[in-house]
Design a binder for these strands. Structure first.
Lengths: 219, 219
DNA sequence: AAAATTTTTGACCATTTGGTCAGGTTATAT
DNA sequence: ATATAACCTGACCAAATGGTCAAAAATTTT
């Protein structure tokens, strides 16, 4: 019996069944994201996830059936946040605004959801066995519209001709995600201390400036 | 009995013992690098590595004793190449040259040794349990000298003031390694086709130009 | 050519792992 | 209040895994 449940019952309150499912699925998803981030799909064990969630292992299987299914659910839940950040790119006509807000959104995501970024990174590094379809359909489509925007900016001479627009996009992805995926390395090179919020804000602004200058815009 | 051995013996030639060890260790290291790149340390099995090397599992243990030791050897062997590329940065006084040749070297490494880059990425993502010391000693020292160079360029007004020099360094690392670590994603977004050599050369030049412009240099 | 050394490998083992299941508990509908 | 449905979990299992070992085969040394 969980501590939470004991507390709740001591007050004579009962959790509704719907709430129970909702709560536990969220607890497990959050725990799984951390464990998958650190060890990848194959390297993570359901026992580790259960311990992280402070639930018995059987409970994980009760809610998500298999480890692979839980993994897919984690990826899916990350995708939601990811696509929301992606939207910002097409909200602005001017490259200066679009790039600035997109980099800002991506950096914030790296700060607030580093484990999610790591799970994605692991998935892609290992050949995207579970995300192949998402990549070649949803992501491809989104990238194509971005590429069009960038190419239009180039035609209108609003930014420098970068050659292939993908190269710019990859630079933005890689640079912003670096602060999530390689946060441990960043910490070590920051004299062993995690970046403070204000240090992170500084870095964010610097990244924005680097990106703007890289396409010939004066920040 | 391996095919190779049969061939060799059919010609009445015997391999020297030293050569045997050298050869097999290399075969295993190359196989292990591929498997570790795809599944990480915990997710890779000695059986997978053995199959990839086309050797019996016992043979892996004969040469490297444990999986962890083999993993460390793989990391060590990657580090050699990695540090060689790093040297190019300090070979030039002018930022234009230094940045150009460093990005060039890093991009070439991503092209020729993608699996090594992935193993490193996995190691850092999972908190660098085996490479902590290397990171905080060798890498830290190298980064410090780079940061000094960059800061000097800024003082001499040879490049724009980028704020923290680390930010620039991270952008270069992230962007160049993206072509190794996320090669699968790059392929999908390149209409499912691997980048050809000439396409890769184009990308490389575009990355160099982006980096140079990002610090205010006209490529 | 015989002894010593190194390499090779199948058989084996203890442990770990993902997953099942029966039986108990808790909440909800009637 | 009782029946039904949902939730919970310890005990269990078959398969996979890292690693061992003894004995055979190949090579080098004497």
């Amino acid at each position: 019996m969980s501590n939470k449940k004991v507390l709740v019952q001591a007050r004579g309150i009962t959790r509704s069944k719907e709430r129970i499912r909702e709560e536990n699925e969220l607890i497990i998803l959050i725990a799984a994201e951390k464990v998958f981030a650190k060890h990848g799909l194959k390297g993570s064990t359901t026992k580790q996830i259960a311990d992280m969630a402070k639930l018995p292992k059987s409970n994980i299987h009760y809610y998500f059936h298999t480890k692979l299914n839980l993994y897919r659910c984690v990826l899916e839940s990350i995708l939601v946040d990811w696509m929301r950040a992606a939207d910002t790119f097409n909200k602005f006509d001017e490259p200066r605004e679009a790039l600035k807000y997109y980099v800002d959104a991506k950096m914030n995501l790296s700060r607030t959801r580093p484990f999610g970024s790591k799970v994605w990174a692991n998935e892609i590094i290992s050949g995207a066995p579970e995300m192949e379809e998402v990549l070649s359909s949803r992501l491809k489509k989104w990238v194509d519209t971005c590429v069009s925007s960038i190419n239009r900016w180039i035609e209108l001479k609003k930014i420098v001709n970068v050659g292939d627009a993908h190269t710019l996009l990859y630079m933005i992805w890689a640079t912003t995600q670096h602060y999530a995926d390689f946060d441990y390395q960043v910490m070590i090179l920051n004299n062993g201390k995690k970046l403070t919020d204000s240090e992170f804000e500084e870095k964010k602004q610097q990244v924005i400036d680097l990106v703007l200058r890289s396409v010939g815009l004066n920040p």
